[in-house]
Nucleic acid binder design. Sequence first.
DNA 1: ACAGGATATGAGTCTTCGCTCACATTTTCT
DNA 2: AGAAAATGTGAGCGAAGACTCATATCCTGT
Lengths: 208, 208
Amino acid sequence: MTAPKKPQTLPRKKAQQARSVATVEALLEATTRILVREGYDRASTNRIAEAAGTSVGSLYQYFPSKEALVAELIERHIAQESLLMLAKIEAGAQLSAPQMLQEFISFVIQLYGRNKPLRKVFIEQVPKIGKMQRVWTIENEIGEKLCGSLFAAAGRSEEPKTAMQQFVLIKTIMGVIRAATLQKPQNLDHELLALELSAMLIHYLNLE
Amino acid sequence: MTAPKKPQTLPRKKAQQARSVATVEALLEATTRILVREGYDRASTNRIAEAAGTSVGSLYQYFPSKEALVAELIERHIAQESLLMLAKIEAGAQLSAPQMLQEFISFVIQLYGRNKPLRKVFIEQVPKIGKMQRVWTIENEIGEKLCGSLFAAAGRSEEPKTAMQQFVLIKTIMGVIRAATLQKPQNLDHELLALELSAMLIHYLNLE
DNA sequence: ACAGGATATGAGTCTTCGCTCACATTTTCT
DNA sequence: AGAAAATGTGAGCGAAGACTCATATCCTGT
C-alpha cells in the first residue's frame, strides 16, 4: 500500500549566519571523510555529525536525509569537474583538431586519476541518489561543446554535427576512461591511450 | 578499531537433496522478483524468504547474507551473457571483419535492451558486492576473443594484437552501449549506432 | 522399520539507524 | 540591554532488518 518514497534531497533550510555556513561545510567535509574511510553503508547521520563536531539535530536542520548530504556532495563534484572540462576545451581553441582532442582526453584521464576512492563512492551512489540524469545532461553538454570546437578547429564550423556524432564522441571518451581508471591495467600507457583514442575519433568525425 | 568487514558471499552449505535445490532456486527467483519490484534496499531477507515460500532460517542455511544471494544472481547473469557473446563471436566466424563486428555490436545492444530493470539493479550492486573484478576479467576475455576473430576474418591471424587494441575495442563497445541503454536517448537509431561504431573500430584496427 | 543426517520453521534477539523534540546557547536588531 | 530570531544539542523513540536457535519434519540407506 505504501508508495515507494524516494528520499527528499532538497536542503531543508538555508544557512544564513557565518556560523551555520561553517556547520554546513563541516558536515559536508565530514561526510566526505567518512564516505572514503568507511563507505556509504557505514556512514550514518550520527557518525557524520559527530565527525563534523556538531550534533545530529544540526544536521537535520540543513539536510533532510543522508541522501541529501551525499547529493549535495555529488552535485558540487559534478559541477566543478564539468567546469574544468569546459575550460579545457576553451583553452585549446587555437589548436588543431587532433591536438585539441588529444589534450582534452589526456586532461580527463588525469582528472579521473585524482581522488580515486571518493570517485568510486560517487560512481556507486550516483544512480541510487538519482543524479544520473544530471550527469548525462552535463556529459551531453560537454559532448556538444567539444564537437563544436573540433569542427571549428578544422575550419568546418558550418557543417551540422549530428546527435550520433556527439554521442559516440563523448561516450567513447568517458566510457573508456572510466574503465581505464577503475580497472587500472598498469601496463596501459595513458599518453598512448589518449593518442589512439583521439586519432580514432578524429577519423570517425572526418576531421583530419 | 573494528576492521571493515566485507560480507561473506560464499555459499554456506551446498544443497544435496532435490527438495533443498528447489528451495535455493526459489530463493534466487524470489530475490530477482523483489529486486526488480522493490529495489535493493527494500529487499530484506525476511521478505525474500516469504516471497520464496520458505523461511529465513532456510535462507541462512544456504546463503550467509543478503549480499551472497545477490552475488550468486550476478554471477549467473554474467556467466550466461558472456557465453552468449562468445557464442555470437563464433557464429560469425565466416563473415567479413566489418560485418562480424557490426553484428556483434547489434547483438550486444539487443542483449542490453532486455531486462532493463534487473540490469539496472545489477549495475548498481556490482561494485558493492565486489564483482567488478569478475566483470572485467570476462570483458577482457571477450575483447581478446573478438579481436582475434576480427584479425582472422581479415586474413591477418599472424599479426600481434596489442593489449591496447583489445582494451579500446571492448571498452568502447561496452561503454557506449551501456550509455545508450541506460540513458536511452530515443532519437538514437540502434542499427545506425552499430554501423558507425563498427566502422570506427574497424578503421582503428586497420582491418578494412 | 528405524536411525541419523538433511532440511525447514519462524518467533524472538540484538543491533543499527533515522529522525524528533524539548531545551540551551548565540547572534542580531532595535 | 532586552527581545526575537537563528542556531546548536543529544538523549531517546520507534522502526527496520539481519541473523540465531530450539524445535519439528522429511529423506535415505540399511
